[in-house]
């Protein structure tokens, strides 16, 4: 059985757990804890080690989705989770400009871990206050070839589209490496 891995990362409360939950065939295995900090009390619980989702492709192939913890004090997990990943998704809450700087820092950290393709998912695009993906491209200083995709983490089709775009980027990279 071959297992391949993708990492879903991003700042605190960006929607990573929901993203995995929308497509995982098993209930997301979360290592969540109740939030005690008043400042972080925008949701009841948060991921402290990782989230884990699975999509079985066949008897011999399975895709694992790992969600990273968003809070800075758990960032020692990022390096561990990034090892051997096929690619990664950086989730950004498009309605929270106060998290954009942190998203940029996380993106740069993961880029330094591995030269694997990645996409940026501009989450919560169904909300009125959402910043447009192309504005986020400028703010995050994304290179033109990096895809930034409108996303709603609770919508399965939207999550599928994000994962597919990442896989197309992986395919493009493989073709380039093979000179096709």
């Amino acid at each position: 059985m071959q297992a391949v891995k993708m990492v879903i990362t991003g700042p605190f409360s960006a929607g990573k757990t929901q993203f995995i939950g929308s497509v995982s065939e098993i209930d997301v295995v979360s290592t969540e804890r109740k939030i005690s900090s008043v400042a972080e009390k925008v949701k009841e619980s948060t991921t402290v080690a990782m989230d884990f989702g699975r999509i079985t492709v066949g008897d011999d192939l399975v895709l694992y989705l790992f969600g990273t913890p968003g809070q800075r004090r758990f960032d020692f997990m990022w390096d561990i989770l990034s090892q051997g990943m096929l690619g990664f998704v950086v989730m950004v809450d498009s309605t929270k400009p106060e998290t954009f700087r942190e998203a940029k820092r996380i993106l740069e950290t993961f880029e330094s871990y591995a030269s694997t393709p990645f996409v940026v998912a501009a989450n919560k695009q169904d909300q009125e206050d959402a910043w447009e993906p192309e504005d986020l491209r400028i703010i995050l200083r994304l290179r033109p070839e990096v895809k930034i995709l409108p996303c709603v983490a609770t919508d399965k089709e939207s999550v599928k589209n994000t994962l597919l775009e990442l896989l197309y980027s992986i395919l493009d990279q493989l073709d380039q490496e093979n000179g096709n």
């Binding site: 391949v4 497509v23 999509i55 492709v57 066949g58 192939l61 895709l63 096929l86 599928k160 994962l163 597919l164 896989l167 197309y168 992986i170 395919l171 493989l174």
Partner: peptide
């Protein structure tokens, strides 16, 4: 990768 794309 092609199989992953088909599955998703």
């Amino acid at each position: 990768v092609v199989r992953l794309i088909d599955r998703i």
